[in-house]
Write a protein that binds this DNA or RNA. Structure first.
Lengths: 350, 350
DNA sequence: CATCGCGCCTAAACCGGTTTAGCCTGCCTC
DNA sequence: GAGGCAGGCTAAACCGGTTTAGGCGCGATG
C-alpha cells in the first residue's frame, strides 16, 4: 500500500494527450515542441507529481548520475584528518542540488586502489571521480582516463592530465607561517613534511625551503607519512639532535599536536622554548594548551568548487584550472618570540 | 576505441546457442536449466568476460544495489570524530565485496535531514540506509519505514522499530572508566556528556551515574553538544565551581582534549590534580601529553557487522539484534591517583 | 501548381537485463 | 494407447525512460 507506485512517463503522456517521446522532448528542453504542448505536458507532470526515473534514464543514456570519491588512505589517517569530512560536505552541497549522488569507495584490504577505480568504472557506477591526494607521477590519472571516466584533480598533477583541476596554494600558507616565524626572530627552523610521494606534501616542503631561504633562515626538512606517530618521532629527533630548531612548521595539525606532546615531554614550554605551527586549522587545535597556530584552508569551499568543476566536465566542458583563495595563517598561542639563544641541547640553557 | 562496449547478455546467449532468458536463469541459479546448458552458458560468459549490467538489472528488478549513509551532523563535528571514517571503512569492507556501493549524503544547508532521506528514496537511489546517532524518539525510523527502505540502526532505538540493530555496549566502556577511577581513589567525579537528545549520549550518562553510585562516589553530569567548545566550557565550569571533581569522564575524546587544555590553562597538572578519560580512543590521544586514557570501540568492525546485517535485511531476513564486543578501557597517562584532599577552589591547595 | 522545407508530432526501436506464458519432448501412469 | 506431468527451453513482454525515422499539414518558393 505504501508503495503507491510512481507515475511513469506514459501516465504523463496519456494525461497530456501526447506521445511518450514528446514528453521526453518537453522535459529535456529539446526543440520541436510547441509552446502550447510544452505547457500542457509540464502541467500534467506537475499534477501527477512525476519526475523521471533515474534508473530508467540511467539505462537509456548510459550515465549513472553519480560521482565517486575513492579514499586511498587508511582509516586511521583519515580519521585524524579534518579535511575529508569538510571536503565531502562541500561536494554534497553541489551534488545534492544537481541530482547527483556521491559514491564513496574505500580501499579495502586485499583490493588494490587501482582495482577500486576499475570496479567503479566497470559497471559505470559513477560518471566521474574526484582525485585527491595526488602523488608524484600519479598512475591514477592514466587509469581513470583509460577507463573513460571524467575526473577533477585536487591540485595540478605533475604528469600530463586531460582533467580539470582545482587548487589551493598551500605553499602560500606555509610561506605565511615561515614569515610569521621570521618576524618573531626565529633563525633556525624545521619542517615536518608529509611523504615525498605526495604532491601537496612536497609542494609544502618546497615552499618552506624557499621561504626560509628568502628570509635567510637555516632550515631543515624531515619527511614522514603524515601520521601523528611519525610526526612525534620526527619532532623528537629534531629536538634531541644537535642544533635543535627554535620553531617547527608541521605539514598538518595532527603531527603538530603530536609534536607539541613530545616537546612538552622533553620539558620544553611552547612557545617560550619552541614555536609550532600546524596545517588545516583543526577545530581541536583551538582548544589545546597552547592553542595551535595553524594554516587554515577552506575544505568545504574546495569541495564545492571541485564538484562544480566535475559537473562541467561531465557536461563536456574543456579542462580548466581554478585557483582558490590563498589559505590564511591563524595565529594563536603556539608561536612566540624566538628564545634569546638557541638551546644547544636539552637542559643546557644559557 | 577505449570504449570496447561491453558484451551483453544477448552476446552470451548467442555464443552459448540459447535464449537470453536461459542465460539469465543460469546466472541467477534459477531452476529449469540443464546442467549441460548451465555449464555452456557460464563458459560462454567467462570467455566473453561478461558480467550483467548493474544499470539494466537495476531497472528491471527495481533495486539500486546501493546503500546510503546520511550524515546529519555538521562537518565540524564529524571532522573531529574518528568514528565515521573507520565506520565507513568497515561498511566498505563488506559492501565492496558484495557488489553494493555506498552512497554518502550529507545534510546540506537549507535541506532538512528528513528531506535527504526522502530524496534518496524517491528515486530509489539506495535500497537501504544505515541509521547512526540515534536520537530520543527518533523520527527517522518512521520516515524510513514509510519510504519503504530497508535499514539497520546503530544501537536499539527507544521507539518501535521494524529494523535490525547492531549495538556496542558503550555503557560498559563508561563503567570501566568509572571503576578505574574508583580504584585510583577518586570519590568526586563528573561526566561531560553529549546532548540529551542523543541516545548513546544518554546511555553513557546513565551508565556513568549508575557506576558512580555503585562505587559510592559523588557524581555530576554536565551535558554538551559533543563539541570541543562546549566540552571546554563545561570543564571550566566544573573546575572553577565549588567542590571541583578530581576526575572527569568525557563522552568523547574531542571534549577530553579540550578539557585537558582548560585544566592546563587553570594551572592544574593532569593527572596529579585531575584525572581525565576520553571515549573513542582517537589516535591523537596517544600523542598528547599526557596521553589520554580512553574507551576504545572497534568502529570498523561495527561498520562491517552493520553492513552485513543490512545485506541480510535486503535479502528479506527478519529483524535481528546483534551485540558487539564490549569496548575496552585503554589506560594511559591522563588518569592517576586521586589527590589527597580535593581542591576546594583554585590555588587553595591544602 | 508542384515541390520543397519546416514545425510539430507519433510510432517504434533501443538500452540490457528479468520474468511470464507457453511450447515441446519424453516418461510415467492407468 | 491416451492423458498427465515435469523438465528444459524460447519468445515476448516488461521495467521507464531516450532517440531515431518518418508522417502530416502548411506556408513559402520556383
Amino acid at each position: 500500500m505504501a508503495e503507491a507506485s510512481r507515475p511513469t512517463i506514459a501516465d504523463v503522456a496519456r494525461r497530456a494527450g501526447v506521445s511518450k517521446g514528446l514528453v521526453s522532448f518537453a522535459l529535456n528542453g529539446k526543440p520541436g515542441v510547441s509552446p502550447a504542448s510544452r505547457e500542457r505536458i509540464l502541467e500534467a507532470a506537475r499534477e501527477l507529481g512525476w519526475t523521471p526515473s533515474v534508473r530508467a534514464r540511467s539505462l537509456s543514456v548510459g550515465r549513472s548520475f553519480a560521482c565517486g570519491l575513492v579514499i586511498g588512505r587508511s582509516p586511521d589517517v583519515i580519521a585524524a584528518d579534518p579535511f575529508f569530512p569538510s571536503f565531502i560536505a562541500g561536494l554534497e552541497d553541489v551534488f545534492s542540488t544537481s541530482g547527483l549522488v556521491l559514491v564513496l569507495a574505500a580501499v579495502t584490504p586485499g583490493r588494490h586502489e587501482e582495482q577500486t577505480y576499475r570496479d567503479l568504472a566497470h559497471d559505470k557506477r559513477v560518471d566521474g571521480v574526484v582525485l585527491t591526494d595526488l602523488r608524484v607521477g600519479d598512475s591514477r590519472i592514466d587509469v581513470v582516463e583509460e577507463l573513460g571516466l571524467s575526473a577533477v584533480t585536487l591540485g595540478v598533477p605533475d604528469v600530463d592530465s586531460p582533467f580539470s583541476s582545482v587548487s589551493v596554494d598551500d605553499g602560500a600558507g606555509i610561506r605565511h607561517a615561515v614569515e610569521h616565524l621570521a618576524d618573531l626572530g626565529h633563525r633556525e627552523i624545521a619542517h615536518v613534511a608529509g611523504p615525498e610521494t605526495m604532491l601537496h606534501a612536497t609542494r609544502r616542503a618546497r615552499a618552506f625551503v624557499e621561504a626560509a631561504r628568502a628570509h635567510g633562515m637555516r632550515a631543515r626538512v624531515v619527511t614522514t607519512d603524515f601520521s601523528a606517530a611519525e610526526g612525534a618521532a620526527a619532532t623528537r629527533a629534531l629536538l634531541e639532535g644537535d642544533d635543535p630548531p627554535t620553531a617547527i612548521v608541521y605539514s598538518n595539525d595532527h603531527m603538530a599536536v603530536a609534536g607539541l606532546g613530545i616537546a612538552q615531554r622533553l620539558g620544553l614550554t611552547v612557545p617560550r622554548d619552541l614555536s609550532i605551527t600546524g596545517f588545516d586549522d583543526t577545530d581541536l587545535g583551538h582548544h589545546l594548551h597552547p592553542a595551535l597556530t595553524s594554516v587554515a584552508t577552506d575544505a568545504r569551499a574546495w569541495g564545492a568548487v571541485a564538484a562544480r568543476t566535475l559537473l562541467d566536465a561531465l557536461a563536456g566542458a574543456p579542462p580548466t584550472h581554478l585557483d582558490l583563495d590563498e589559505p590564511t595563517l591563524v595565529i594563536r598561542e603556539s608561536t612566540g618570540a624566538a628564545p634569546r639563544r638557541p638551546r644547544r641541547s636539552r637542559g643546557s640553557t644559557a
